[in-house]
Simulated scan of single mutants.
Amino acid sequence: MGVKKQLGIGVMTAALGLSLIGGGTYAYFSDSETTNNTFAAGTLDLAVEPTQVIEVDNIQPGDSMTRNFELQNNGSLAIDKVLLETNYSVTDAEGDNTGDFGDHIQVEFLYNADKLDEVIYQTTLAELKNMSPEAVNEHVFDPVLEDGLEPGSLDDLVVKFNFIDNGENQNQFQGDSLNLEWTFNAQQAADDGE
């Protein structure tokens, strides 16, 4: 046999030996498990009851009306802040208004039922309309909702509306109506790391 042939057989034998040794090193017991994981987003669901806070007719300067309403957290996430946006429109019955009816409607936010005499914040509808929602939260809701609203909880709020009697002629507002729209926006609490 030639050197080349002997060398070829030697290389093949070595390759076969290595493959047997290598194949042996991969023989072992094994096991595997698969996990099924889900990510479910929580819900932020603020409700206001009743949905119509006030409806009155035939008011006159000096009249006051107190109304209660609830802020409810019907979601699964905590509410940290409630931001209130105020908007209103005035229907002028006679077309003779020189002033804004909203300047003559005072709003007093009060602590809930057992503390009706304690005013949290007082302003007019016109001023409230021009306030940023963050400022309203700071003045009105922060003192009441110190710890926010946990899921499934509610908080009673009381508001008093006063038609300010300024001691002057307010005839321009006779027959007028004001349509008030409050939009409550909830913001979630910061992540607690769970």
Results as ranks from 00 to 15, higher is better:
75 G>Q: 06
97 N>P: 12
59 I>T: 14
15 A>S: 10
60 Q>W: 15
55 E>L: 11
124 T>W: 15
101 F>I: 05
137 N>F: 01
26 Y>W: 15
147 D>A: 11
93 A>F: 12
141 F>N: 00
49 E>C: 01
135 A>D: 15
59 I>Y: 10
65 M>Q: 12
125 L>K: 01
131 M>D: 13
70 E>A: 00
102 G>F: 00
16 L>C: 10
107 V>S: 07
105 I>G: 05
130 N>A: 05
67 R>V: 15
52 Q>H: 05
44 L>F: 00
56 V>A: 09
94 E>M: 13
148 G>D: 03
67 R>D: 11
49 E>S: 11
61 P>K: 01
58 N>L: 08
149 L>E: 06
42 G>Q: 10
52 Q>F: 02
15 A>W: 08
67 R>F: 15
80 D>P: 06
79 I>A: 00
148 G>R: 00
130 N>G: 04
70 E>D: 12
62 G>W: 04
85 E>K: 11
57 D>L: 10
132 S>C: 02
56 V>H: 07
98 T>I: 09
113 A>P: 08
40 A>T: 13
132 S>V: 02
37 N>A: 04
74 N>V: 03
63 D>C: 06
64 S>Q: 10
33 E>C: 04
69 F>C: 00
114 D>P: 13
61 P>L: 05
66 T>A: 10
125 L>M: 08
14 A>C: 09
81 K>R: 15
113 A>W: 05
142 D>Q: 12
147 D>H: 05
125 L>S: 00
95 G>L: 10
31 D>E: 11
116 L>P: 08
93 A>K: 15
30 S>V: 02
108 E>N: 13
140 V>S: 02
96 D>C: 04
101 F>K: 01
147 D>N: 15
108 E>T: 11
41 A>W: 07
29 F>Q: 14
26 Y>K: 11
98 T>C: 07
69 F>G: 00
110 L>F: 06
149 L>D: 05
86 T>F: 01
109 F>P: 10
128 L>T: 08
83 L>Y: 06
67 R>W: 10
47 A>D: 14
129 K>I: 06
63 D>T: 10
74 N>P: 14
49 E>V: 07
78 A>N: 04
51 T>V: 12
91 T>N: 15
57 D>S: 14
71 L>H: 00
102 G>I: 04
140 V>H: 09
78 A>E: 07
141 F>C: 00
93 A>L: 15
56 V>G: 02
